[in-house]
């Protein structure tokens, strides 16, 4: 199918993008790589009246290692994350998870910020942010604030971003503990039926509810996952238990 008609405006700076968001409010959506938003529009699951293209704003595509954190700009593409030696060294969980994010053509355009702001509960990256205890940088005309990943994903495709806020970067605390990542999917690159991103004793499951869910390794799983064409709720609960056990074994944590 084709996307419904909309207006398109290109923002040159973050300030301009925030001003446009303030002006158009909830009718507008930011467009970065477009690899989640455009399919949703083609399927008519989303029909914003205005797209604000932030894809060409400069200065948002940096990966910086500071003393105690790794900062990734919102417009860093998945492919760049996958090939970054700095990320592989400091946050290998993200490198491993990125191998499972869609396919090469989509990774070449999709962006970190776009993925997280889209908040798909079946996506790998929001779960990684929870496991890693990352913070999300949100910018608006009022300034910049940091939102802990645990408070960022608020529901199905819902985030804590205000209508006039733009996700501009993420920060991951360093050093990152040992990790485990696995997902179960029908085809390599497809959305997971169930997946688990673990960092130390923080276990973040995805594709098990309306948002990624974080559990301490010592806690028992309390899941109420949806049923769909891929799996029943009971199958998802079972698979999540299997992944949890594998993670605990791999990380040397006593169940």
């Amino acid at each position: 199918m084709k996307a419904p008609a909309f207006d398109y405006v290109r923002a040159g700076t973050v300030t301009e993008a925030c001003a446009l968001l303030g002006q158009h409010g909830a009718d507008a959506r930011l467009l970065a790589g477009g690899q989640s938003l455009l399919p949703a529009m083609n399927l008519r699951l989303a029909s914003p009246s205005v797209l604000i293209d932030v894809g060409r704003i400069t200065g948002l595509d940096g990966i910086e290692v500071r003393a105690d954190k790794l900062r990734i700009g919102a417009l860093v593409r998945h492919e760049t994350v996958l090939r970054s030696t700095q990320i592989a060294k400091h946050v290998p969980l993200l490198t491993e998870a990125m191998r499972h994010v869609a396919h090469p053509a989509i990774r070449a355009r999709g962006t970190m910020g776009g993925n997280l702001a889209h908040a798909d509960p079946a996506s790998e990256l929001p779960a990684c942010m929870l496991a890693l205890g990352a913070a999300i940088e949100a910018t608006s005309a009022r300034g910049t604030r940091m939102i802990a990943a645990e408070y960022f994903f608020t529901g199905l495709f819902q985030t804590a971003l205000e209508p006039d806020e733009m996700l501009t970067a993420i920060q991951i605390p360093l050093p990152a503990p040992r990790f485990f990542f696995q997902e179960i999917a029908r085809r390599s690159g497809d959305y997971a039926i169930v997946g688990l991103a673990a960092s130390g004793d923080r276990l973040a499951f995805f594709s098990v509810g309306d948002r990624p869910l974080l559990f301490q390794a010592s806690a028992s799983l309390d899941l109420d996952p949806p049923a769909d064409l891929q799996a029943t709720a009971a199958m998802r609960v079972h698979l999540a238990g299997v992944l949890r056990q594998r993670a605990l074994t791999a990380l040397g944590i006593q169940a």
């Binding site: 477009g34 690899q35 399919p39 083609n42 053509a105 355009r109």
Partner: peptide
């Protein structure tokens, strides 16, 4: 499919693979 799943529309943009159905002409 026109939603990025099938790959039939694969092209190169600035040397990198892309789904032509998931890129606006204006982009």
């Amino acid at each position: 499919c026109e939603h990025g799943v099938c790959g039939a529309c694969t092209v190169r943009i600035d040397g990198a693979l892309a789904r032509a159905c998931l890129v606006l002409a204006v982009q």
